[in-house]
Amino acid sequence: MTLEVITDPLLDGTTHGFFTRKGGASSGVFAGLNCGYGSSDQHDVVGINRARVAASLNVTTDRLMGVHQTHSSDVIVVESPADGGAEADALVTRTPGLALSILTADCQPVLLADPKSGVIGAAHAGWKGALFGVLEATVAAMETLGATRTQIKAVIGPSISQPNYEVGPEFRDRFLDANADHDRFFVAGQSGRFQFDLPAFGLVQLRASGINQMAWTRHCTYADPDRFYSYRRSVHQKEADYGRLISAICLKNGR
C-alpha cells in the first residue's frame, strides 16, 4: 500500500510530510505505518516502516534523524547521522540530506523552516513540552544556525483536537498558574471537567516566539482511527499498546 503523506504549502522548498498510519507493514493494534521502536511492535517491522519513510523523503535510513522524546523543552542541533538519539524533544539543522523526525500519537508534531537561510526544525509539543516552552526553544535554536524568526514558517500536524481532549481541573490549574490568560484554551465539559485546545495553544506559542506564518493541518488523531494512531483512544478502548506516527522534514538540495 502506498504511504499517505500530508504536506503543507507553507513548507514549500523542503521535503516534508506528516505521515498517516497507511502504507505500513505492522499488524494488530499497530496495523499500518508504526514508526516507534518504543512500542511493543516487532523491531524489524518498525524498521521496515521507517525505511519506507526514509525512501519517501529520498534519504537513507541512517539520515532519518530522531530523538528520545521526554516531554521536555530540550533541543539538539544535528550536523551528521551521529548526532541523533539524544534525549530531547526537538531537532534543528542546516545540513542538507538530514531528515528531522518526530513521533507522536496525539501530541503536536511541529515542522519549521526558514527557506532563506536553509534552516529547518522539528518539535514534539505535547501539552507539557508546549507549556515548558519547546516551541520557543526550537525557534531560538534555529536562530543560532542563522534563521530569522520573521522568516520561519511552521506547521502543526495531526494532533488531538479540543472536542476529544478532556482534562481535569488540576490540568487546567497548571496552565492558569503559568498564565491566567491560558484560560482561553479551555471550555467547560461535563462533571467539572474541561476540553483543552492543544493546537490553538501551539499556534499562540509559535506567534509569541515571533513566527508570522503558521498553520495547523486540522486533522484530529483521536477522531480518525483509520488514518492516525492515538494514545488516548487506545486507553479508552483498553488496547495493550498504540502505534506512533512519524513527521519529518529535510532540505531538498543534497542527499
Rank of each mutant, 00 (worst) to 15 (best):
P169F: 08
S39F: 09
V134A: 14
F185V: 03
P96R: 01
I102G: 08
A178P: 06
F19C: 05
D181Q: 07
H68Q: 15
G243I: 04
A178I: 01
M214I: 13
V77R: 14
G97R: 05
G17P: 15
G47W: 06
A86Q: 13
D183W: 02
E239C: 02
G36P: 12
P109D: 03
A31P: 02
R255W: 05
L103P: 14
A188L: 04
A82L: 07
A90G: 14
T217C: 14
Y229G: 12
H124P: 08
T221H: 10
A125R: 14
L245K: 06
E239L: 12
T93N: 05
V187F: 01
G129E: 03
F194C: 01
G126P: 10
T14H: 08
F175T: 01
S56W: 15
L206Q: 08
H236G: 04
I211M: 13
S80L: 04
H43W: 01
E143H: 09
D89L: 04
R244F: 13
L206H: 12
N253R: 06
C35M: 06
A137I: 08
I156M: 12
G254H: 00
A123E: 03
T148W: 02
A113F: 14
V235N: 11
G17L: 15
F201M: 00
A178L: 03
N253W: 02
R94L: 07
D177R: 14
D241R: 11
T148A: 10
A31G: 04
D181T: 07
T221D: 00
A130D: 10
Q205W: 06
Y242P: 02
N212I: 15
D241V: 13
A215V: 14
D114F: 07
S230G: 11
V67I: 14
A125I: 13
D12K: 07
N179F: 00
A188G: 03
T221E: 04
N34L: 05
M142G: 06
E166L: 05
V46K: 13
L33R: 05
A122N: 11
N212A: 15
T7Q: 14
G13F: 07
D183V: 10
C250Y: 05
P169Q: 10
Y231T: 12
L111T: 09
S26L: 04
R172W: 00
T93L: 11
Q108E: 08
T95F: 08
I48N: 04
G32K: 03
V92Y: 12
G28E: 08
S247A: 15
N164T: 07
P158Y: 02
F196G: 01
E136P: 02
E87A: 15
L11Q: 13
G28M: 04
D41F: 11
K116Y: 10
D12P: 10
V167T: 08
N179I: 02
L112A: 15
